[in-house]
């Protein structure tokens, strides 16, 4: 493989030039960076350890499986959201698209496994592409574009189900139903699929040119453009991916529930955004990680689970706790970012 670096340039010329060394960042900055990156994981582990002492049913295999299957679907949605937010955008349509994907999959499941899997991907991918085109080519604000498709997708869903009166069922015993209901060692297929997608997502974000372009677009769109990166294409692709993932998660959920439930997914986009931000991805874009999002989703899942464990507490308080946590994280990030800059 030929070197990308102009060989002549790396060869020393003339007198050896005086070396300019940049000072290394201090320990405090590095600690802040580590905390910013892995802080959620630390909180998650701490919470789990404490909970397993407080509630004897918490650290059981059954409960773990329960948390995992609950978290699998929002996790897949949040994965797509992570990629969008890294580019400095936002995708509010994922909740509606999630529900739409489920209904489309349930309807298509009567024609077999492949239609049930592919049709929601086509429909939801198209919605994502439309979002991306409006954001990248028409220069519209992501918030507005995806708010519109949030409404649009929900409307489409209601039209398909006759105002929600008709519920499509997944045929019993079909291969598609097994995709949602099957399990390995008690862990449902959706959990394994979500883990695989996160591994893939991490690889794409950190180790591919596309991933680098996502960071660049979010970090400084102008610079990315001047550096000759395909900014518009990257944006279209990332919204498409978000739509695909949300639709796929919806299809999986329909398979698990054996029906296309129309009323789910409301407010799911906000949970996804919370998980992404709690996971350390900057809402303004340019920095973030897929693993952080996974921890963020799990953290929200564990909090929900704990509130259920307490029993006496109304489960609606889950949102209050998550909301409070979100604020703590955002404030902490401000401080950590300042510490990293060494100010």
């Amino acid at each position: 493989m030929k070197s990308l670096v102009n060989p002549a340039l790396s060869a020393p010329t003339g007198a050896p030039p005086a070396t300019t060394a940049e000072p290394r960042p201090g320990g405090r900055q590095r600690a802040a960076e580590l905390l910013q990156r892995q802080g959620v994981l630390a909180v998650l582990v701490l919470l789990c350890v404490v909970s397993s002492f407080l509630f004897e049913s918490f650290a059981t295999l059954d409960n773990t499986r329960g948390i995992a299957i609950q978290a699998a679907f929002p996790a897949i949605v949040a994965l797509g959201m992570t990629l969008v937010i890294v580019t400095g955008g936002i995708d509010l349509s994922v909740g509606s698209v999630f529900a739409l994907g489920g209904v489309v999959a349930a309807w298509a499941s009567q024609y077999g496994f492949l239609p049930a899997l592919l049709l929601p991907l086509v429909v939801c991918g198209a919605i994502g592409t439309l979002n991306g085109l409006l954001v990248a080519k028409a220069g519209m604000a992501p918030f507005i574009v995806t708010l519109a498709s949030l409404l649009g997708a929900r409307g489409l869903l209601l039209a398909l189900t006759h105002e929600g009166a008709k519920t499509y069922l997944v045929p019993r015993g079909s291969a598609f139903q097994k995709l949602g209901g099957g399990a390995v060692w008690g862990f449902g297929y959706p959990v394994l699929i979500a883990l695989a997608l996160f591994a893939l997502g991490g690889l794409v974000l950190q180790r591919t040119s596309f991933g680098q372009a996502l960071f660049a677009v979010g970090g400084s769109g102008d610079a990315a453009l001047l550096m000759g990166l395909p900014v518009a294409r990257t944006k279209v692709l990332v919204y498409t991916l978000s739509g695909l993932l949300a639709g796929f998660a919806g299809a999986l959920n329909a398979a698990r529930l054996s029906s296309g439930v129309t009323i789910i997914g409301v407010g799911m986009e906000l949970d996804a955004i919370s998980a992404v931000v709690i996971g350390g991805t900057l809402l303004v874009g340019g920095a973030g990680s897929v693993s952080g999002t996974l921890w963020g989703v799990l953290l929200l899942g564990v909090i929900q689970n704990l509130i259920n464990q307490i029993g006496s507490l109304n489960s609606s308080y889950q949102s209050v706790v998550s909301g409070g946590f979100l604020i703590v994280v955002v404030v902490a990030q401000r401080y950590l970012s300042a510490a990293r800059r060494g100010t």
Binding site: A216, G219, S220, G286
Partner: peptide, 10 residues
């Protein structure tokens, strides 16, 4: 005109 949050090499 570079991306501040990304590494030098990137």
């Amino acid at each position: 005109n570079l991306v501040p949050l990304m590494s030098v090499a990137r």
